[in-house]
Design a protein around this nucleic acid. Sequence first.
DNA 1: TAGCTAACGTACTGGTTCGTACATTAGTGA
DNA 2: TCACTAATGTACGAACCAGTACGTTAGCTA
Lengths: 221, 221
Amino acid sequence: MTSVEEPARPGERIRDAARTRAEILDVATQEFARAGYDGARVDEIAARTRTTKRMIYYYFGGKEQLFTAVLERAYGVIREAEQQLDVDHLDPVAAIRRLAELTFDHHEQHPDFIRLVSIENIHEAHHIAGSEKLGRIGSPALDVIRRILASGRASGLFTADVDAVDLHAMISSFCFFRVSNRHTFGALFGRDLLDEGQRAHYRAMLGDMVIAYLTAERTAD
Amino acid sequence: MTSVEEPARPGERIRDAARTRAEILDVATQEFARAGYDGARVDEIAARTRTTKRMIYYYFGGKEQLFTAVLERAYGVIREAEQQLDVDHLDPVAAIRRLAELTFDHHEQHPDFIRLVSIENIHEAHHIAGSEKLGRIGSPALDVIRRILASGRASGLFTADVDAVDLHAMISSFCFFRVSNRHTFGALFGRDLLDEGQRAHYRAMLGDMVIAYLTAERTAD
DNA sequence: TAGCTAACGTACTGGTTCGTACATTAGTGA
DNA sequence: TCACTAATGTACGAACCAGTACGTTAGCTA
């Protein structure tokens, strides 16, 4: 999520539009993820940048548009990662487990993204709806899931006629919840879902669950 | 979630501490759920009450404590509902499906509660941690799950040696995600997870998933 | 090298928002 | 019935915060 890491040589290297813009986005991502949309402070974002508040309005127009830009970039990062998915060489069962594991890993590695999505849901996806870049973009992972499901059904390994979007929701919900609800779950049940020692356990549990669901013999249809 | 519904006879019925307190909590629940902690306005809460802002500070002390009180009551409602759970007369498979369905229904029926929990997670469960009533309260559903799992294992129906808290997390994650991420999911995939026509489908899917997981033959252990 | 414009900084403003000082009254117990 | 306190209302203040008016300069181009 970090795209600016110049050594910050003092005094030097002024007037770099691209860098300034990117730096604002980096800091804004952290600040919005930290405090939510209304909790985030434009002054605080500016203070943690090598530029001033004026530039935020110069480049983005306002707090609202800045948040939209943050979301757009965050979703862009996810899309790129999902496009790297390569599980076609595996058999359907192994492929779906691998996909679940990669989704699991990805959620764990991007807690700020999870927080931004949670925040955007509190605001009823208002910013996504107003963004040309984000409306109905779907997810590259969906195509992967579709291919795996088709091949699994063809080979008779998968008994259930499952919809790709539904399976994506099933996998995502577990991965997302583990990160998004970590704090309340921990406070209520005294168990940290992100505990390092439990990581492999939950990762396997997700895979087992999905495979079991896809390969179970249905009593009725 | 609504506990005050007096006919509001004008001018009458002044000086009712319990009612005033409850009315503030009702309105505050809506306002916090609507806008998040920082987005919520104390003045707005007061305006939508038959009393004044002064009373909010009189009864609760401040915005922070008011939010904690809102959370405490919301969790209290959930606990009460979970205590009504009665699935002991069913066989383990039917019992676990019934439990999943009731969890599913309950999440769907209390979107404000889901939003409050999401908001509290953004704030890293700070208010729960500071509340005597909420620390480590767990969930009555956990005991039910423990009983069902024990009986399922004893009868040999459940192959997996699953932990109750983990199973609770699995069920909750799907139910929670469906409500909490409804808006971003809908905006991105063009599918409303709360669509009335899909309700039975997702409800069955959750049950199928859990049952498949619990009854699947494991390849390794 | 002159001039033009994109990029940047400073200082301020107007409205908002949490919180409170102060005044008042309903209802209860002696 | 009288006094006392719990409950309530009004009006205001001080800090905060998004957004902007205005001024400046770096660096490219003709």
